[in-house]
Design a protein around this nucleic acid. Structure first.
Length: 818
DNA sequence: TCTATGTCGATTTTT
DNA sequence: TCGACATAGA
C-alpha cells in the first residue's frame, strides 16, 4: 500500500516545513474570499460544480482550493490532477499557487493542459496502443498533409473531396472518443461514404509513422483506460483530487477521460460557465456542464455571482442578451461597483467609417475624453467576430499611426519558416520522422522534385526503413544523378553530422515515480550525458549549413527580412530549454506566442481569442446580422448555432470593465462586393435603460447630410426603439441612393473633406523617389510627402498613405543581421 | 524542376 | 478582394 496517510509523505522539497506547520493553524488565505468562493474552496470531498460567471474570481477560487488541499494535508502536490485547456491558464494557475505558497512549486507534475497530461500518460503506456514511447505529435498542418498523401494514393479528387473536410470528420469522431470501429452508422455517409474507411487507413498510417495527432492524445489514453482496468485503477487511486477549468469547453473524449479518472473517489471539482461555451464547433459539449449533477450524483453546485470586473450597466447589458438563451443553468451576476457609463451603441455608414470613428475614439480616450480618466492603449481592445474584420482597423491605424497589436493572427510556431526550421530539428533529433524529412528535403530548393522524391520513397519502402535511410541508400547507390544527387548527399551527411552533435552518451535510466503506487509498475526515462555542442549553437549550425538561412537571405519578397527575424527569435527561444528534444516537445503542444510589450498598443482580436481577458475599454464592431451572429453558424447549426453566437456576444460584453462600445455598419465590403446589412438581432436584445445610442458623425453636417433621409437631424434620440427604426432606414430607398452615390466616388479618394495640416515638427526625413521598406506592405518608392505622412507606391501593395515612422529606408531593412 | 498564370472559395481555432 | 493551390509552359 502507499503511504498516503502518513504526514511524512510530504517530502521536504515540495512542501517546506513552514507550510506543514501552517496546516494546524487558521488558514489566512481563506480570508480574502467571499462566501460563495469560500464554499467552493472548502467543499473538498465529493463532486463539486463551481458555476463561475464572468469576472467572479474563478481562478482565485480554483488556486486557493489547490492550496487548501495541500495545506489541509488532503493530498500531496503530485496527487492533485488539475486540468486546463490552454497553456496560459496552466501557467497562471501554477504561478498563483506558487505565489500563495510563497515559493515555486515543483511538486505539481499533474497541473497542465488535457493534452500535455495525456502526452505524459501516453508516453508511459504507448505500447498498449501500438506506439513507441518516443512518438511524434503532429499538428493540424502535418495532419492535412498526411491525409492528402493518403487521398492522392487513392486517386481522390481533392477538389470535390478536400482533405480538410476529411480531417474535419476525423477530428469530430476523435472529439467524441470514437475509434474507427465505433463510428455510428449514422455517420456512414460521411465523406462520400468513405469517411470511416479513410479514418481507419489514417490511423494505421499514424501508427506506422509512430505519430499521433492532437485528437489521438485523448483518444488513446481513453482507450487505454477503458481496456486496462489495472492501469485505470492505479491512476484513480493516485489522483486523489481532480480539478477542471473551463468545464463547459470539454468534449466527449475529455469528459470520458475525467469520468474514468474520477470514478473511484469522485473528488472532482469542475469549474465553468455554461454561458461562455463558445467552442461547440470544435466539439465542446455544453451538455457536459448542464448534466453535471446527473453525471455525478450528490454533486454540490456553487454559484459565483459577484462580479468584480464590470460596471452595472455593462453587466445588465450582458445579462439581458444572454437571457435570450434557453436551457441555461442560470446565474444572477451582481456587482458592488459604481454606475459608470452606459453601454454605447453607434451605427455607421460603412466599415471604413466605423474604423475611422473607433480610431478617433481611441485617440480621444487616450487623452481622457468626456471627463474620463485617460486610458492607455494597452487597456483598450477591439473584439471582432471574424479575423477578416481586422484588416479595416489595421489599415486605418496604419494611416493614422496608432500603435496596435493583433492577437491571434498566424501564430509564431505556425509560420512557414518556423515550421521548416523545426522540421530540420525534428529530422536531426528523430531520424524516423518521415513527415519532417519530406518537408525539408527540397527546402531550400535542392533540385529534388517529385521524381527524385518518389525514388527515395521507393527505396525506403523496399527496405522497410525511414525516408532518411532510404535517401542514404539512394546516395550510396547513386540512384539520383546530377545536382540533385550531390545535394541529397550533402543533406544526408549533414543530418548525420548534426544528429551526432545533439546528445552525449546515454548515462542512465531515471525512474519516474509520479503517480506510481508502491504496488504498481515503474517507469523510466533515459538520461544522456552532456553533448559536445550547445543546442542553441547547434540549431544555428543546422540552419546555416543546410542553406536554409541563405535561402531567406536571398529572398526578395517583402517577407524575407521578417522571416529571418523570426528565425533569429526561434534560436533565441531555444535558450530556455535544455536540448532540442525538450524544445520540440514543448513546441508541439504550446503554440502560443508571447507578444513583446514595448509601447502601449490597442489590441485587436477575435471574440474567441478574448475569452478570459479583460480591458477597461472594449469596442465591439460589426454587429450586423449575418456577420454577427454569423450566417454560417446559423445555417449549419440552427438555433444551437445562434445560441452559441449569443454566448459570444455575452463573452464580448463581459470583457469590458468600464466602457463598452458596440457598433454596426450599414454597408460593408465583403469579398470585394458591397453588401448592406441590418443591425444585429443582438442589438435588439440590449436593455434600453443601460444603453446610450450615439449619433453617427457622418449623419449631420458631413458630406452625407441627414437631409432627405428621415433622420431628423440627429437630435439626441436615446430611445432604442427609435434607433431600431432608424437602423431599418438603412435599408430604405434613401439609403440605397446614398450608397449608390458613394460607390461612384473615385477610388482612393477620402470620403470626407479633410484639411491637411502639416506638422512641421514631424516632417519626415524621406525624399521623393526614395526606396523604402514597410513591415506590412514591403518595398516601395516614395511618391508624395505630406507632413509626416508619405504616399508610397509599393511594389506589391499598390499606392498607400502611411505615417513615416512605420517606414524604413530600404537599405536599412536590407541588412537585418542574422 | 522551377516559375508564371488562373481558378476557386472564403468563420471562429485553447492543443 | 485576396490568398492558396493547381496546372501549364520554360
Amino acid at each position: 500500500m502507499s503511504n498516503f496517510d502518513e504526514m511524512d509523505a510530504f517530502d521536504g522539497a515540495s512542501v517546506p516545513l513552514s507550510q506543514r506547520a501552517m496546516s494546524a493553524r487558521p488558514m489566512p488565505y481563506l480570508d480574502g474570499l467571499n462566501p460563495a468562493q469560500r464554499e467552493a474552496v472548502e467543499t473538498l470531498n465529493g463532486p463539486v460544480l463551481m458555476l463561475a460567471g464572468a469576472g467572479t474570481g474563478k481562478t482565485k477560487a480554483l488556486t486557493t482550493r489547490i492550496v487548501h488541499l495541500m495545506n489541509a494535508s488532503k493530498a500531496r502536490p503530485n496527487e492533485i490532477l488539475a486540468v486546463t485547456f490552454t497553456n496560459k491558464a496552466a501557467r497562471e494557475m501554477k504561478n498563483r499557487v506558487g505565489g500563495m505558497l510563497g515559493q515555486s512549486i515543483e511538486g505539481m507534475p499533474w497541473l497542465g493542459t488535457f493534452h500535455s497530461i495525456c502526452v505524459k500518460l501516453l508516453r508511459r503506456h504507448a505500447e498498449l496502443v501500438g506506439l513507441k514511447s518516443n512518438f511524434t505529435i503532429l499538428d493540424t498542418d502535418d495532419q492535412i498533409r498526411l491525409l492528402k498523401q493518403l487521398l492522392r494514393a487513392e486517386s481522390i479528387d481533392d477538389k470535390r473531396w478536400p482533405a480538410r473536410m476529411l480531417a474535419g470528420f476525423i477530428d469530430g469522431w476523435k472529439n467524441r472518443a470514437l475509434t474507427p470501429d465505433k463510428v455510428p452508422s449514422a455517420d456512414a455517409g460521411a465523406y462520400n461514404n468513405r469517411g470511416t474507411e479513410f479514418y481507419e487507413m489514417y490511423q494505421k498510417r499514424l501508427l506506422e509513422l509512430n505519430a499521433v495527432d492532437f485528437g489521438d492524445l485523448l483518444l488513446h489514453v481513453v482507450t487505454i483506460f477503458q481496456t486496462h482496468d489495472d492501469i485505470l485503477n492505479q491512476y484513480q487511486r493516485w489522483f486523489r483530487y481532480i480539478l477542471v477549468d473551463e468545464y463547459q469547453d470539454t468534449n466527449v473524449a475529455q469528459y470520458l477521460w475525467l469520468r474514468l479518472l474520477a470514478g473511484g473517489h469522485k473528488n472532482i471539482c469542475c469549474v465553468g460557465d455554461d454561458d461562455q461555451s463558445i467552442y461547440g464547433w470544435r466539439g465542446a459539449e455544453v451538455g457536459n456542464i448542464l448534466r453535471f449533477e446527473k453525471d455525478f450524483p450528490g454533486a454540490k453546485v456553487v454559484r459565483l455571482e459577484q462580479n468584480y470586473r464590470s460596471t452595472p450597466h455593462i453587466l445588465a447589458a450582458a445579462s439581458n442578451v444572454i437571457a435570450g438563451n434557453e436551457g441555461r443553468l442560470g446565474k444572477d451576476l451582481w456587482t458592488a461597483s459604481e454606475e459608470g457609463e452606459k453601454v454605447r451603441l453607434i451605427g455607421h455608414w460603412d466599415g471604413e467609417e466605423e474604423a475611422r470613428w473607433i480610431g478617433e475614439e481611441l485617440e480621444a480616450m487616450q487623452g481622457g475624453a468626456r471627463g474620463m480618466r485617460p486610458i492607455s492603449l494597452d487597456d483598450m481592445a477591439i473584439l471582432v467576430r471574424a479575423s477578416h474584420q481586422m484588416r479595416a482597423f489595421e489599415d486605418r491605424f496604419l494611416t493614422i499611426g496608432l500603435p496596435y497589436r493583433v492577437i491571434g493572427g498566424p501564430r509564431f510556431y505556425e509560420r512557414m519558416e518556423i515550421r521548416d526550421a523545426m522540421a530540420y530539428f525534428r529530422v536531426v533529433t528523430s531520424p524516423d520522422d518521415d513527415l519532417a524529412f519530406e518537408r525539408i528535403v527540397n527546402t531550400p530548393k535542392r533540385g529534388l522534385g517529385d521524381k527524385a522524391q518518389q525514388k527515395i520513397q521507393m527505396a525506403a519502402r523496399e527496405n522497410g526503413v525511414s525516408l532518411l535511410e532510404g535517401a542514404r541508400i539512394i546516395v550510396d547507390t547513386k540512384g539520383i544523378g546530377g545536382k540533385g544527387g550531390t545535394e541529397l548527399g550533402k543533406l544526408v551527411d549533414g543530418i548525420a553530422r548534426w544528429s551526432a552533435l545533439t546528445r552525449g552518451p546515454l548515462m542512465a535510466n531515471v525512474i519516474d515515480d509520479d503517480a506510481v503506487l508502491d504496488d504498481g509498475p515503474t517507469f523510466t526515462q533515459p538520461e544522456y550525458g552532456p553533448p559536445e555542442m550547445g543546442h542553441v549553437e547547434l540549431a544555428q549550425v543546422i540552419l546555416d549549413e543546410s542553406g536554409y538561412t541563405a535561402h531567406w537571405q536571398n529572398d526578395k519578397t517583402p517577407e524575407g527580412p521578417g522571416r529571418l527575424e523570426n528565425l533569429k527569435e526561434l534560436v533565441k527561444a531555444l535558450e530556455q530549454f535544455e536540448n532540442l528534444q525538450g524544445f520540440l516537445e514543448h513546441v508541439s503542444l504550446i503554440m502560443d506566442n508571447e507578444q513583446e510589450k514595448d509601447e502601449p498598443k490597442v489590441s485587436i482580436m477575435t471574440l474567441h481569442g478574448a475569452k478570459g481577458l479583460e480591458f477597461p475599454a472594449v469596442f465591439l464592431p460589426g454587429w450586423e446580422d449575418g456577420l454577427f451572429p454569423s450566417q454560417r453558424s446559423m445555417d449549419e447549426s440552427g438555433l444551437k448555432g445562434l445560441e452559441e453566437e449569443r454566448r459570444l456576444a455575452y463573452v464580448g460584453i463581459t470583457r469590458a470593465e468600464e466602457l463598452c462600445t458596440i457598433s454596426f455598419a450599414a454597408n460593408r465590403m465583403v469579398f470585394g462586393q458591397w453588401q448592406n446589412a441590418l443591425p444585429s438581432r443582438f442589438i435588439d436584445e440590449l436593455p434600453e435603460d443601460h444603453v446610450d445610442v450615439l449619433t453617427p458623425p457622418g449623419l449631420y453636417g458631413g458630406s452625407y447630410g441627414a437631409a432627405g433621409m428621415g433622420m431628423g437631424g440627429g437630435s439626441g434620440r436615446s430611445d432604442l426603439e427609435q434607433r431600431v427604426q432608424d437602423a431599418n432606414v438603412y435599408n430604405s430607398p434613401g439609403w440605397k441612393r446614398l450608397q449608390a452615390r458613394k460607390d461612384q466616388r473615385p477610388m482612393g479618394q477620402p470620403s470626407e473633406a479633410k484639411n491637411i495640416t502639416i506638422d512641421m515638427t514631424a516632417v519626415s526625413s524621406f525624399s521623393i523617389g526614395e526606396r523604402v521598406f514597410h513591415q506590412k506592405f514591403g518595398y516601395g518608392a516614395v511618391i508624395g510627402i505630406e507632413g509626416d505622412k508619405l504616399e508610397i507606391e509599393f511594389e506589391k501593395a499598390g499606392i498607400k498613405k502611411v505615417v513615416s515612422r512605420f517606414v524604413a529606408a530600404a537599405d536599412a531593412a536590407d541588412d537585418i543581421p542574422f
